[in-house]
Design a binder for these strands. Structure first.
Length: 589
RNA sequence: GCGCCGUUGGUCCAGUGGUAGGACAUUAGCUUCCCAAGCUAAUAGCCCGGGUUCAAUUCCCGGACGGCGCACCA
């Protein structure tokens, strides 16, 4: 509800976030969370942890932010995160060189072609600038990788990268994590942590930055057997914007329940639907306005090739729809990649209900024959025989079997292969789990919650700005004020602060200026409740002359309505705790 | 990375070739006491580098940072 500028101004003035290193001119794309922002962020992370890790029975890990190069060779970030930019000598526009090649030749996947060759291709095909038509031959291609590079240890022999996403830290430890899960699927692993992308052009304050916090869940499932229990979210409604609606001329997002989108196949993967339901509830709980929220399905062109289905959570901020998080069914892509690139196996052993007995063809080639016969190729021939036996046992029916090694055919007498068929009992098989990945940006969620909480109203003819943050995530839960710091009210209030803090509440004390001013200060940082110690509090406490003392009371004021109620001091810690945790409402007092 | 515009106390702005003023905020005192009241005082600023000039916050060039547009966003 803010116009962006107002929110950024409030955020800086009230300590939510500010650009880092301002004393040194500032640096683009890096922000420091001030006291209010750090508390808010922590609270948001805590609710995410509770919902996505604790309540789901998932495990949380905390991996390094720096990883060695091979990790990103396997993950594809080293190539895939690489942009080849070529600048037009005439109009100075930068373009993706690989895209220009793909668009104008039959070549596909130009991204994986070395830069020098792409430069040659541009010259060879006489490719031109898409903007102004000037020839690009001879222009140097700038290789720009979005990952921050560093060196591990002295020298440059061991390059490392700041992780561009937290997920790889989970994937690469899969073998051990599976062990922790007793090799039982499904199991989920979460991580909240920083990730880094050396963006070409950071924009829009917190929404596009170079260092940010992600909260990710990698759920490992057996694609053939595991299904989510949708019961908990089946009636959750959310706005859905499927690909077919986006592509239709008059397509619109529409409201539906999780059950509906699963039943009619709009969300193809039940696991994805389940976490869309969970996420919707979570976003709502941290203050995202559901009237400016939707789940948008990726169009086929924008989906990664391995993703069977992918949805984004989006929110409308300053008139633009921004991505808050992605929900991707990544199949076995990540684990298979690490399985083949690393020395370890990224599989789990799945036991059959009943052991099965199968006939398996085996060979045990006579190397004393293969060696002299095939020389250096002997080993490869033996491997080829083994592969062939598995693939096509019938090939061993004759007296000779032919295998190809490096394009050359080699004939081997079957009698030298010790070909045989034996019965083997198998109790299970190694399977590569599929990955369901809800991946959320904490900073964007925080910014959106702030933006959607921003309110302006009038109280007694005076303008007021406040943040209607949910009490569960507000940086401070309670402001405690003496009506004035005099006649013992200040001491009473300060004692009360200690008591409330001991009860686990986030409390701030303020005795500066008029009472109304203090209320407004707390309004601006979204403090949901303010407690004021007044003369009545003391008067009741001091009731003497033999009269039984009435219980001390204070006023509790609600942020959004500015309404006040008197509450006995003795009940105050428990009352405020119940209000914060949503067990009671202010109206119930 | 390109183009346009911008950068003055904590915040929002005004202004000037001779180093600056307001509002709000903050602090102290007086006063008031349940919704940004009043009075007095205090704290606090010209993004950085180079150039022109006797003198630059002001003009010029470059840079950093910000906003918008383009490109980019695995």
């Amino acid at each position: 509800m803010s116009d962006g500028g107002d929110l950024v101004e409030l955020a800086k003035r009230r300590g939510f976030f500010l650009q880092s290193a301002g004393a040194y001119g500032g640096v683009s794309g890096f922000y420091t969370f001030g006291p209010s922002g750090a508390a808010l962020k922590q609270n948001i992370e805590d609710t995410w942890r509770d919902r996505f890790a604790i309540q789901e029975g998932n495990m949380e890990v905390d991996a390094p932010t720096v990883m060695p190069e091979p990790v990103f060779e396997a993950s594809g970030h080293l190539d895939g995160f690489d942009d080849m930019l070529v600048e037009c000598p005439e109009c100075a526009e930068s373009h993706r060189a690989d895209h220009i090649v793909e668009d104008n030749t039959d070549i596909e996947e130009a991204e994986s072609i070395p830069v020098a060759e792409v430069e040659e291709l541009i010259a060879e095909y006489e490719l031109v600038c898409p903007t102004c038509g000037t020839g690009l031959a001879g222009q140097a291609i700038e290789d720009f990788n979005l990952m921050f590079e560093t060196n591990i240890g002295p020298g440059s022999a061991d390059p490392g990268y700041l992780r561009p996403e937290t997920a790889q830290g989970i994937f690469i430890e899969f073998p051990q994590l599976a062990e922790y899960a007793r090799n039982q699927l499904p199991f989920g692993v979460t991580q909240i942590g920083r990730a880094y992308r050396n963006e070409i052009s950071p924009r829009k304050s917190l929404l596009r930055v170079r260092e940010f916090t992600q909260a990710e869940l990698e759920l490992f499932v057996d694609p053939e057997e595991d299904e989510p229990d949708l019961a908990a979210v089946t009636d959750v409604t959310a706005p859905f914007y499927p690909a077919r609606e986006q592509e239709a001329a008059d397509g619109q997002p529409y409201e539906a329940t999780i059950r509906e989108v699963v039943d009619d196949g709009v969300v193809g993967k039940p696991w994805i639907a389940y976490y869309l339901g969970v996420a919707k509830q979570w976003y709502e709980s941290i203050g995202v306005d559901m009237d400016r929220f939707r789940f948008r399905q990726h169009l086929s062109g924008e989906r990664a090739h391995y993703a069977a289905d992918c949805w984004d959570a989006e929110a409308e901020v300053d008139g633009d729809w921004i991505e808050l998080g992605g929900f991707a069914y990544r199949s076995d892509y990540d684990l298979s990649k690490h399985d083949s690139y690393s020395d370890e196996e990224f599989t789990v052993f799945k036991q059959y209900d009943e052991p099965v007995t199968v006939e398996r063809a085996t060979v045990d080639p006579d190397m004393s024959y293969l060696g002299p016969e095939f020389g250096g190729s002997a080993g490869a021939v033996a491997d080829a025989l083994e592969a062939l036996a598995e693939r096509d046992p019938d090939a061993f029916d004759g007296s000779e079997v032919v295998v190809e090694v490096d394009g050359e055919s080699h004939a081997v007498p079957v009698e030298k292969t010790d070909f045989g068929v034996e019965e083997v009992t198998e109790s299970g098989e190694h399977i590569t789990p599929h990955v369901v990945e809800p991946s959320l940006g904490i900073d964007r969620a925080l910014y959106t919650a702030l933006d959607h909480s921003y309110r302006e109203d009038e109280v007694d003819g005076e303008e007021r700005t406040y943040l209607a943050l949910p009490q569960e995530v507000a940086p401070t839960t309670v402001g405690v004020f003496p009506l004035m710091d005099r006649d013992g009210m200040g001491e009473y209030a300060r004692d009360l602060v200690e008591e409330l803090r001991a009860a686990g509440l986030a409390v701030t004390y303020d005795d500066s200026g008029a009472i109304g001013r203090r209320y407004r200060r707390q309004d601006e940082v979204g403090t949901p409740f303010c407690v004021t110690v007044d003369y009545a509090t003391l008067g009741e406490a001091r009731d003497d002359e033999g009269e039984p003392a009435a219980p001390d009371t204070v006023t509790v004021r609600e942020r959004d309505t500015t309404a006040q109620k008197r509450v006995p001091v003795a009940d105050l810690p428990e009352t405020l705790r119940a209000l914060r945790d949503g067990e009671r409402t202010f109206d119930d007092l």
